[in-house]
Computed example of a mutant assay.
Amino acid sequence: MGLDREIAQSEGRVHRAMHRLRGFLHHHPVLLWCYRIIVSVVGAVLILMGLVMLITPGPGWLFIFMGLGLWGTEFHWAHRLNLWSKSKVLGIWHRAQEKRYDAHRRKQARIWADRDNQQHYCPSGCHISQPVRPE
């Protein structure tokens, strides 16, 4: 599955289960209050762990986005920040892919231009012979 489709896909089993849980919690104010505290604390812990992992080895950005995603279930500003950061990361990802593809094409063009036999192209170069001269 592509990165674009994976991020765009917001409906799933977990999403539906969370929706049912929220519906249940709205009928029980004490449980809703406890749920919000737990979400806030766990989200903060994930973000702090991500910040530590930016300096030390580990998937720091992943934990930061997970914490923002968790906070996004309760705080609108965190949801907007998460969507904005996902769009920026996707933009950077696409630019990096384009640069990598352009570099690959330039390398292939340079290999092709340096060859003596321009009538036949073999990427591995396993059966390249001298140019065929018309008789």
Rank of each mutant, 00 (worst) to 15 (best):
N82S: 14
W112R: 14
A109R: 11
I64G: 03
P123A: 02
R115H: 06
D4T: 11
L51W: 04
Q97Y: 04
V42S: 02
L81Y: 11
D114K: 12
K99Y: 12
Y121R: 00
A109D: 11
E6G: 10
L25V: 03
I64N: 06
L48R: 06
L68D: 04
I111A: 09
I38G: 03
L3P: 09
L51V: 07
P29M: 02
R20E: 03
K88A: 14
R20K: 05
K88S: 13
V89N: 08
R95L: 13
L62Y: 15
V52R: 09
K99G: 04
W61E: 14
P134L: 15
Y101S: 07
D114I: 04
Y121T: 00
C34G: 07
P57M: 08
G69V: 08
S10I: 08
K107H: 15
Q118M: 03
N117C: 09
P131Y: 02
D114W: 04
R80G: 09
G23D: 01
H120M: 08
N82R: 14
V41H: 01
P123M: 01
I37H: 06
N117W: 00
I37D: 04
K86I: 07
L83K: 14
K99A: 13
P59K: 12
I111L: 12
T73L: 13
M18L: 09
Q108M: 15
S40M: 07
P123E: 01
E6A: 14
R16G: 01
V45G: 02
